[in-house]
Simulated assay, not measured.
Amino acid sequence: MKIVSTVEELRHTLPTDQTIGFVPTMGYLHEGHMSLVENARRENDLVVMSIFVNPTQFGPNEDLDRYPRDFERDEKLAREAGVDLLFYPTTETMYPLDMARVTVRKGADVLCGASRLGHFDGVLTIVSKLFNLVQPTRAYFGLKDAQQVALIEGYVRDYFVPVEIRRCPIIREETGLAKSSRNVYLSDTEKEDASQIFKALTTARETLEAGHDLEEVKQRLTERLHEIPNSQIDYVELVDYPTLADASSDSKEILMAVAVQFERARLIDNVIWKKG
């Protein structure tokens, strides 16, 4: 595995005659990231991973400064997973002028975007920069942040970006807790409590499959989440996927998405129900 940190090194190293699978991350890698690498390895000649904690997607009161970082650990995991090229840039490299940013006009004012103003502008700005640099054949994103995946797919379509976006399933602990770099903030008790999130979502999907209407499903899901100790609900939403518009009886796919705040970590999770 080769590690590069500058635009010049990256462009000099990238091949022009091979398919490239790209896995963009913010580091502190876990099994979810490794599953993305596994998919990229299987479908491409070369696997490129980036590690960059992107400041423009953090709000003023969020956890940019304390976001978990351990490059030596990440390097070891990336190498063992079969990453061929690891791009590890600085903020100055990725934002040399910070002259222009992507603005999301649809789908950014719901779910996480409703309380994290400007977050997805920052996400799509860094994704745009990374796509321009790496020029991947395929890029791999986990569905734990299903809103992010939907917006990246929309951006690629809207800007005619020649990359295939590959959706990858959520990787979970044995308890059902979705793998996340922010899980490091949770106490053992909170991890146990947080495992109830997926159980609540699973029950909600079963309720929807049983023919209950959307409002009843949402109400029952909210009630289950309220039972989780020492936590506060940020949102509970059922939206059409991937449009992120309000879900209806005509929706072919419905994203049931939640965000729950614990003392030091805000956790998101979801399940997607498909008609038929």
Results as ranks from 00 to 15, higher is better:
residue 85 L to R: 07
residue 27 G to V: 11
residue 222 T to N: 10
residue 161 V to C: 07
residue 206 E to Q: 15
residue 254 I to T: 07
residue 56 T to M: 12
residue 120 F to Q: 06
residue 252 K to E: 14
residue 223 E to W: 05
residue 128 S to K: 15
residue 5 S to P: 07
residue 144 K to M: 04
residue 225 L to I: 08
residue 188 D to R: 11
residue 252 K to R: 10
residue 17 D to K: 02
residue 13 T to R: 14
residue 250 D to S: 10
residue 23 V to H: 12
residue 91 T to M: 09
residue 94 M to T: 12
residue 86 L to N: 07
residue 199 K to R: 14
residue 146 A to Y: 05
residue 64 L to Y: 15
residue 211 G to V: 12
residue 98 D to Y: 14
residue 69 R to C: 02
residue 9 E to P: 08
residue 1 M to I: 14
residue 275 K to V: 04
residue 70 D to K: 03
residue 150 A to D: 06
residue 13 T to K: 14
residue 240 D to K: 07
residue 107 G to C: 12
residue 204 A to I: 01
residue 74 D to M: 09
residue 261 Q to V: 00
residue 131 F to C: 04
residue 269 D to W: 01
residue 42 R to T: 00
residue 194 A to K: 03
residue 265 A to M: 03
residue 270 N to W: 13
residue 130 L to R: 06
residue 87 F to S: 11
residue 64 L to T: 04
residue 262 F to N: 02
residue 116 R to T: 01
residue 231 S to T: 08
residue 171 I to T: 13
residue 76 K to D: 08
residue 24 P to D: 14
residue 129 K to V: 09
residue 176 G to W: 01
residue 186 L to W: 00
residue 97 L to M: 15
residue 210 A to D: 15
residue 142 G to E: 05
residue 232 Q to N: 08
residue 244 L to E: 10
residue 68 P to E: 07
residue 58 F to L: 01
